[in-house]
Amino acid sequence: MAKTNPFEFIQQVRQETAKVTWPTRRETIITTIMVLIMVTLASLFFFIADQILGGVVSLLLDAGR
């Protein structure tokens, strides 16, 4: 593997960083809000599914007595 001196490495990192399209503040805020909404919806879905499955299992186990 070829070794690169630190100065060349830093130049390469700066060149690659210049190619990146950074999101605007508005895009970041909107994306963050969307992620929070999706996390909330997923947590509600799994909570409800867990409650339903827990109730079904309880019914099945109580029926065996």
Rank of each mutant, 00 (worst) to 15 (best):
A2K: 10
K3W: 05
T4P: 00
F7W: 10
F7N: 05
F9A: 01
Q11T: 03
Q12M: 06
Q12W: 02
V13T: 06
E16P: 01
E16Y: 09
K19P: 01
K19G: 04
V20L: 12
V20D: 03
V20W: 05
W22P: 00
P23E: 07
P23K: 09
T24N: 04
R26Q: 12
R26F: 11
E27K: 06
T28D: 05
I29S: 06
T32H: 08
T32M: 05
T32N: 12
I33P: 00
I33K: 13
V35K: 11
L36V: 15
L36G: 15
V39H: 08
V39Y: 10
T40E: 08
L41W: 14
L41R: 13
L41H: 14
L41N: 13
S43V: 14
L44F: 15
F46R: 07
F47I: 14
I52Q: 12
L53E: 09
L53C: 11
G54Q: 05
G55N: 13
V56N: 02
V56Y: 12
V57H: 06
V57F: 07
V57C: 03
S58H: 14
S58Q: 12
L60I: 04
L61R: 04
D62E: 07
D62R: 12
A63W: 01
G64W: 01
G64H: 03
